[in-house]
Structures are given as structure tokens and as C-alpha cells.
Amino acid sequence: MPHMEANAMTFGEEEGEFYYDRVHRIEPFERNNHYHGTYEVFYLVSGERHYFIKEKLYAIQAGDLVFINKFDVHKTSGLGDPEHERIVINFSDNFVSASQPLQPPGLLSLFKLDRPLLRLSPDEQQMMRSLFHKMEQEIAEQAPAYEHMLRILLTELLIRAGRMLDSAPAPAPVSNNPLHQKITDIVKHIHTFYSSKITLDALSSTFYISPYYLSRIFKEITGFTIINYVNLTRIRVAQQLLNDTDMKIVDIAEAVGFESLTHFDRTFKKMMGMTASKYRKGSGAG
């Protein structure tokens, strides 16, 4: 059954087939950087937020829709008044798989674009809120076949958002702070060269910034230490290889940049709460 209170509703699990979470906060809130094996739709009902997605920082305002692809690192944090209300939907590939009736081709393509933010017009906001309201009704009442209704409503949401994205101007990432661009460049570098040896000193030399300052501003903007972000990037790629290939685990460890299987095993277990072999067997598949 869903958990509900005033201005709040939680249904399902974040890494499950379908998850719906609506919450209204009045106190400052900042979630740690994270990623998951499910797709995410984020809608800001009220307030303002910063959203760090993969490698860029965005200013999110009320009425914005955000699309997070599987395994993309993201983090939301405060921007101005801490009071805000937001809706988050997570869903699996299986929930909207091609075998499901009514699913059109390319339904998930908007998650693969380098453009996670969709700024809606007032009419578009009203239409999206109507869809969210219908989902909440289905979750609350749980009438026969309500899971199928949730799938249909989610499909409608994604189709309509895809149509809007085709004609909407692309909101620019936050760029008023030159340090944000510097960190964006460093994150892109890590995403490209994660399989090579990456050190603080090497990054410092490449981007002409002192090791101490780089370490401090990277943690301040992304929420990660550099070594933690490098390891998270490597483990994220390892998860995809474990899910999608038959590569041996020792070869995966080497391919993503770990110098030893022992270090890979220790890091994977620390981040995922299980060994890579157990993850491959299906316990960690989203």
C-alpha cells in the first residue's frame, strides 16, 4: 500500500518496477549524489532547486520536468528559499518494455539526449499535473488493473513530453560561475578517461589548478571527492558490463580502470552492498 500524508505520497521502490514519490519540504534538503538502474522523471511543483546531472548544473524552477537516464549521476540541492514540492517517478525497462501493448518506438529516447531539462508553458504544466493527479488516484484507490493504468499514464506522459521537447527551446545550464564550467570539464575528462590512471595531481596539471583548490571546489560543487567520483564512474560502467555482457569479472575490473581485482571487488562491494558476482546473478539488477 502507498504511504500517504499531507502533500506527500510514496509508492513502490526506487529500484523497482515503478516508484512514485511526492513530498513537500520546508526545511533545507540536499540529497547526496547518486544513480540507479531505473529511469527517473522529476517534476518541481513549487520552489526552486539546483540540479547537478551527469556533468552540468541546472537551475530548476516550478513547472520544470527533468529526465534522468539510467546510471546518470545526479544530485538536487537548494536554490534560494528551501521550501519546495516535487514529484519523482522511477521506472524500469521492464515496466515499459517493447512487449507491452501500446508502447510506441523511441518512447525512452528523451532520456538519452544531452538535454535533461524541459521547461513547460502554463498549459503544459496543467496537462502534466492532471496526469500526476490521475496517477495518484490510481495509487490511492488501487482499483482492479491499476498497475496497467499507471503504465498507460506514464506512457502518455513520455509521449507528450517527447512532443514538447521537439519544439521547446533548450534551457542553458547554470554558467554564471566559471568554476562550474571548470568542474564540468573535469567531470567530462573523468567520464572519458576513467579506464586510465587518474590522480589529483594529474588533473591539477591538466586543468591548471592547484591540487588543494581543485579538491575543495570539486567536493563543493559535486558533493564527491575526486577519487570517490572516479570510482563511482568506474563502478557504474562495471554494472552495465555485468548486466549487458559475458565478460569475465577480472576483465571488467581491468577495463574500467582498476589495477587489481581485489581493489575492484572491495570498491564494488562498498558502493553496491554486494560482490560483483552476486550482482551479476541478478540480486542487483534494477
Rank of each mutant, 00 (worst) to 15 (best):
E27D: 15
Q181I: 14
R31T: 14
E124L: 00
K197T: 14
A161P: 07
D201G: 02
I152D: 06
A161L: 03
I26K: 10
I159M: 02
D81T: 07
K188C: 14
F224E: 06
P144M: 11
Y39H: 09
F71Q: 03
I186F: 04
N69C: 01
I190K: 04
I159G: 01
Q100H: 07
F224C: 03
E17F: 06
S175W: 01
L165H: 01
R266F: 10
I190D: 04
H263I: 09
L203V: 11
R163Y: 03
H3R: 10
N7Y: 13
K281N: 15
D251H: 11
I159L: 01
L65Q: 02
E254K: 12
P173L: 03
T267G: 09
T222M: 03
A253L: 10
Q142H: 12
T225S: 13
S109R: 00
I60S: 01
I159F: 01
Y146M: 09
Q240W: 09
G257N: 03
I53C: 07
H36A: 13
D201L: 08
Q240C: 10
R22A: 12
H74M: 01
A255F: 06
P171Q: 09
E40I: 05
R119M: 08
I209V: 15
F29G: 05
G223V: 10
E5S: 15
L153R: 04
I190P: 05
L158N: 04
Y19V: 09
L179M: 10
I235E: 12
H133G: 15
R86L: 01
Y213A: 08
I190G: 06
E124W: 02
L179K: 11
R280K: 14
G282V: 04
I26C: 08
G106S: 04
R280H: 09
M127D: 13
L158E: 04
I221Y: 09
A8H: 15
K219A: 12
E17W: 01
F18K: 08
I60C: 06
T199E: 04
V230T: 11
Y58T: 07
F224R: 01
G257V: 05
A276K: 03
P101H: 00
I60R: 03
S277L: 11
I249P: 13
F224V: 08
G37I: 05
P173G: 07
E17S: 11
I190Q: 02
R115K: 09
Y58H: 11
G162T: 02
G284A: 10
A62D: 05
H74N: 07
H189N: 13
M149A: 14
S121L: 05
S46M: 01
V174E: 13
E55T: 14
G282N: 07
V45Y: 02
I235Y: 10
E138A: 15
F111G: 00
A255D: 09
